[in-house]
């Protein structure tokens, strides 16, 4: 289990906590996506003074997770990556490559899904 891990139940709670952490001086390090049951698990990794905080959120099948790019602009690349590789659709992405950040129309679809 990761240190400083917080389970988040709803997307509105997730947005609220991420905004609070940003206000508290946390830097967006990355986001990890895992397959979990029929859905996906997202782990948001934030850093402050070399200490990581991880927020874990379960994305139900067919749910469209909210984009963090409105809070942390840098989230847009990793969210686009997961649209390519896992077939997720993030709502409110600042720049949406629509599944073609890395993959071309002839590439294998959602290779990590």
């Amino acid at each position: 289990m990761l240190e400083n891990n917080v389970e988040i139940k709803s997307s509105s709670e997730l947005l609220k906590i991420v905004q609070e952490l940003k206000n508290d001086g946390y830097r967006y390090a990355t986001m990890i996506c895992l397959k979990a049951n029929d859905g996906h698990e997202l782990i948001y990794v934030l850093d402050k003074n070399y200490v990581l905080k991880t927020l874990r959120y379960f994305v139900k099948p067919s749910e469209k997770p909210k984009s963090m790019s409105g809070i942390y602009l840098c989230a847009l690349l990793i969210e686009n990556e997961y649209q390519d590789l896992f077939g997720l659709t993030f709502e409110g992405l600042a720049i949406d490559f629509k599944g073609h950040l890395y993959l071309t129309p002839n590439s294998p679809k959602t290779p990590l899904a």
Binding site: R27, Y28, A29, Y72, L73, C74
Partner: peptide, 8 residues
């Protein structure tokens, strides 16, 4: 400085 931190 602030922008560098904010954009990761």
């Amino acid at each position: 400085k602030q922008l560098a931190y904010d954009v990761g």
